[in-house]
Design a protein around this nucleic acid. Structure first.
Length: 605
RNA sequence: UGCCUCGUAGUGUAAUGGUAGCACAACUGACUCUGGAUCAGUUUGUCUAGGUUCGAGUCCUAGCGAGGCAGCCA
């Protein structure tokens, strides 16, 4: 399957961050932009991350730069290799064929080189860009622990940092409040030598967790809380997924992030709004270390908040642990892996993630916009197939029971190059149960007693008889066909308002169709109260669908449209290589329904 | 009661002192062997009050509203 978006926008996106990048390149501040996508490996990537990925990689590709993937792994108690792997897979999938040529990775196992620049000591770890080699891997902030430690020592030597013995509770009390200045720590003015000694001993594991910290020395009275001598290092006797048990002290986000950016030569460090108040600290750290190369700068944008779902990692993990969904990649999840499994092409997700724009205004993005992006993409590429989700038997009484013919069906009217296929037709069919109503409301132009309808690619039929079982349920329709009305036939031009899909009962294959719907029933599930009270009880319905036989060859790389129903994709629960085609177990996920004007009319009536 | 940020149709997003546009949604209609797609059209907007200016969504002031910040999380 081509990963190219069939609707690549003619105009490149523009926003306040790109504006800055443009100016920085024009002024010669940087030669090319180097961005990074820095997730913490403590959960799966979701649709909100997709926006960030598209922003960072988008800037890289538009300005001839690069974008590094970096694990922001400075907290050993929360991070796992499973998440590193899923993140890497998801990023690759999302940018494949679009920005993989500016994907910055590093040689496996490589850490920064010490070098001298303009007479100053420096650490630098350049990326390998656009490599598909297996000898490259993502960057890890934890690969910089040696360098970050050295810089911490440097800050102490410059009198810009000190070891503090305050307990966590005392530290909090000393910090003050947003509208109340803090108080200096009693350890703030201890000697450089003593801090150096204590910091070394912290590193050597002489103290238990929480006993001491390394703090910057800035201003306890600052109106910005993040400038009130924020912590640089804490003690954590805990193994790390990437560095093992080498360390028992770990740098805080604020200290590690700006320096990681610097080491990789990042120019524009883009993050979400909640880090806005951290920016002065980001700058303070870099400016107080006398670094020889150009410094990175931080820019903030509003994260994506989609309606009818949640993106909080804590809540997502709860859905997984409580088995509300089958896993992180359940097609109802807003995770990138879930979206992928649902059958959404990467190009559709990108189109959405780019289309929502980049601002500093926190907004709720209507999921209908994503739905539209998916349909727009899939409409262009999906192979049309006939399938019936809820079968109703239909017998054509003026054809013999052994009647057999093959009809031509178009694979994709949006793409004539995909040609046609043959579909079998006989006197016994299945049609969609919804396509028949015994006493329909006005404007229902499908089948009704005595009414006529076109069978797609086949004949116009008339409903003569409705057969019911003992309970009164309709179990069969007996119809006569206008035998001259076959597509291309003598009376094929007759105007019939309705056209319905069907499959030949004798030739149809059974498929497990998983019909997914949105996971929540309200636009903002976690606005108030327990978000799980807003779960949609009908978010998954499983039916055995009757499909045209060509689907035995269904491929996970292709997308299908079941005509008049929706878009489907092969799920990984299917057999890929069965002993014989007829033994193949097929599971299809409904990616999204087609737009349904009738449902809207029906609702109004 | 501190600091920072943000307010443009229902939703999201443009307009960089010069005709408020686009997308989604909604609604009409055309076309249709997918009630899909496509095409044409309609409805709805600059938070408020002052000021600067020939001219303000844009600049200034004040107000109102929303959000963020007091993890040894990121």
């Amino acid at each position: 399957m081509s990963n190219e978006n069939p609707n690549t926008p003619a105009v490149e996106p523009n926003d306040f961050i790109r504006e800055t990048v443009r100016q920085d390149i024009a002024s010669g501040k940087y030669k090319v932009p180097v961005t990074r996508f820095p997730p913490e490996p403590n959960g799966y990537l979701h649709i909100g991350h997709a926006k960030s990925i598209c922003l960072n990689f988008g800037i890289a590709r538009e300005f001839g730069g690069q974008c590094n993937l970096r694990m922001d792994d400075t907290n050993p108690t929360k991070e796992e290799v499973e998440y590193v792997d899923s993140i890497t897979t998801d990023v690759k999938w999302l940018i494949d064929g679009w920005a993989d040529h500016c994907f910055g990775l590093k040689p496996a196992g490589k850490t920064p080189d010490a070098q001298t620049v303009n007479g100053k000591k420096d650490f630098f770890l350049p990326a390998i860009v656009g490599s598909h080699s297996s000898l490259v891997e993502p960057f890890y902030a934890s690969d910089y622990f040696d360098q970050i430690y050295e810089w911490a020592v440097e800050l102490v030597k410059r009198g810009k940092a000190y070891v503090c013995d305050l307990s966590p509770e005392e530290t909090e009390a000393y910090r003050g409040a947003p509208d109340k200045p803090g108080k200096d720590s009693p350890f703030r003015n201890r000697s450089i030598e003593e801090s150096l000694d204590l910091f070394t001993r912290m590193k050597n594991g002489e103290f238990p967790d929480g006993k001491r910290t390394l703090r910057s020395k800035i201003d306890m009275a600052s109106p910005n809380i993040w400038l009130r001598d924020p912590l640089l290092y804490r003690i954590r006797h805990s193994a790390h997924h990437h560095t093992g048990d080498k360390w028992c002290i770990y740098p805080m986000y604020d200290f590690a992030h700006c320096l990681s950016d610097y080491i990789e030569g990042i120019t524009h460090s883009i993050c979400t709004l909640e880090f806005e108040v951290h920016r002065p600290l980001y700058d303070w750290i870099l400016e107080n270390l006398d670094l020889p190369r150009p410094l990175p700068h931080q820019y903030e944008f509003a994260k994506l908040i989609p309606s009818y779902t949640i993106v909080s990692k804590r809540k997502l993990i709860q859905l997984v642990n409580d088995k509300v969904v089958t896993g992180w990649d359940d097609p109802r999840m807003p995770t990138i892996s879930g979206i992928r499994r649902r059958g959404v092409p990467a190009s559709a997700l990108r189109s959405f993630a780019i289309g929502v724009g980049v601002t500093k205004f926190i907004s709720l993005t209507d999921m209908a916009v994503f739905d539209h992006a998916i349909r727009e993409d899939l409409n262009k590429r999906a192979l049309r197939r006939l399938a019936v989700l809820r079968p109703l038997k239909l017998t054509i009484t003026n054809l013999f029971p052994h009647h057999y013919e093959e009809l031509d069906a178009v694979n994709n009217p949006e793409d004539p190059g995909t040609g046609t296929r043959k579909i079998p037709f006989g006197n016994t069919l299945y049609i969609e149960h919804d396509d028949f109503m015994e006493s329909p409301p006005p404007k229902f132009f499908r089948l009704k007693p005595g009414g006529e309808v076109r069978l797609k690619y086949a004949y116009i039929i008339k409903c003569d008889e409705v057969v019911k079982d003992a309970s009164g349920k309709v179990v069969e329709l007996r119809c006569t066909a206008d035998l001259d009305s076959k597509s291309g036939g003598a009376t094929s031009g007759r105007k019939i308002k309705g056209t319905i899909h069907w499959v030949s009962a004798q030739h149809a294959i059974d498929v497990e169709a998983r019909l997914y719907d949105r996971l929540f029933t309200v636009p903002e599930p976690d606005a108030e109260g327990d978000f799980k009270a807003n779960l949609n009880p009908h978010s998954l319905e499983v039916v055995t669908a009757k499909c045209e036989p060509s689907l035995v060859d269904a491929s996970p790389d292709l997308r299908y449209q079941f005509e008049r129903l929706g878009y489907f994709t092969l799920d990984s629960d299917s057999d890929i290589e069965p002993p014989t085609p007829s033994q193949r177990k097929l599971v299809l996920n409904r990616t999204i329904t087609l737009k349904d004007t009738w449902a809207k009319i029906e609702k109004k009536q």
